[in-house]
Computed example of a mutant assay.
Amino acid sequence: MYEEKIKEILGYDLPEAAKPLAAYVPAQKFGNLVFTSGQLPTKDGKLFAVGKVGKEVSEETAFESAKISAVNCLSAIKSIVGSLDKIDQIIKLVVFVNSETGFTAQPKVANGASEFLVNVFGDKGKHARSAVGVSELPLDAPVEIEMIVKINE
């Protein structure tokens, strides 16, 4: 059900979970919670955008990057639980924004992920969130997102 909704919104299928860049796993299940590792805005094997938000990357492109990072979080979750239909609630997002000095619209960027999740999951997509400006991210990505979800066992 949720994967069909994602395809309807995005126009493409949920991608396979990205392979880790180092010694970690894409997601970890603990009880009825799944925690993702930070997911970058990769699409078709490469970053959707590169650089600092407020300098090389526009707020609009960063908003879209946040949505793509959320999609990649969902792919990591699916790789652990087998189906997104097992998601009972999106609990929390932590959105890191590679910010140019003086850029303070991290919450607007994070809305790319938050609005997407509510569009897909409805009330189950409403979540707690932190939007944090950082000076650098891996591979010079503009956004990185971690997600925690509650699943039905």
Rank of each mutant, 00 (worst) to 15 (best):
Met1Glu: 06
Lys7Asp: 02
Glu8Thr: 14
Tyr12Thr: 05
Pro15Met: 06
Glu16Met: 06
Lys19Trp: 00
Lys19Ser: 10
Pro20Asn: 08
Leu21Ser: 07
Val25His: 04
Val25Ala: 11
Pro26Glu: 04
Ala27Pro: 14
Gln28His: 14
Gln28Phe: 15
Gly31Cys: 12
Leu33Ile: 13
Val34Asn: 06
Phe35Ser: 10
Phe35Asp: 08
Ser37Val: 06
Gly38Phe: 13
Pro41Phe: 10
Thr42Tyr: 06
Lys43Ile: 12
Asp44Phe: 03
Gly45Met: 01
Leu47Gln: 05
Val50Ile: 14
Val53Trp: 05
Gly54Trp: 05
Lys55Phe: 01
Lys55Pro: 01
Glu56Met: 03
Glu56Thr: 09
Glu56Ser: 08
Val57Phe: 05
Val57Asp: 00
Ser58Asn: 11
Ser58Lys: 14
Glu59Val: 15
Thr61Val: 15
Ala62Val: 13
Phe63Cys: 09
Phe63Pro: 11
Ala66Asp: 10
Lys67Ile: 11
Ile68His: 08
Ser69Pro: 07
Val71Gly: 05
Asn72Gln: 05
Asn72Ser: 05
Cys73Ser: 14
Ile77Leu: 11
Ile77Phe: 05
Val81Met: 06
Val81Pro: 07
Gly82Ile: 11
Gly82Met: 11
Ser83His: 06
Ile87Cys: 06
Asp88Glu: 15
Asp88Tyr: 09
Asp88Asn: 14
Ile91Ala: 06
Leu93His: 12
Val95Tyr: 01
Phe96Arg: 11
Phe96Gln: 08
Phe96Ile: 01
Asn98Tyr: 00
Ser99Met: 02
Thr101Gln: 01
Gly102Leu: 04
Phe103Cys: 03
Phe103Ser: 04
Thr104Ile: 10
Ala105Ser: 07
Pro107Ala: 06
Lys108Asp: 07
Lys108Trp: 00
Val109Pro: 03
Val109Glu: 02
Ala110Pro: 07
Gly112Glu: 07
Ser114Trp: 00
Phe116Val: 08
Phe116Leu: 08
Asn119Leu: 03
Asn119Phe: 00
Asn119Gly: 05
Val120Cys: 07
Gly122Tyr: 01
Asp123Leu: 11
Lys124Cys: 02
His127Trp: 10
Ala128Ser: 13
Ala128Glu: 14
Val132Pro: 03
Val132Gln: 05
Val134Pro: 04
Glu136Gln: 09
Leu139Thr: 05
Asp140Leu: 03
Asp140Pro: 00
Ala141Val: 10
Pro142Met: 12
Glu144Tyr: 01
Ile145Pro: 04
Glu146Ile: 13
Glu146Trp: 12
Met147Ser: 12
Ile148Arg: 11
Ile148Asp: 04
Ile148Ala: 13
Lys150His: 04
Glu153Cys: 02
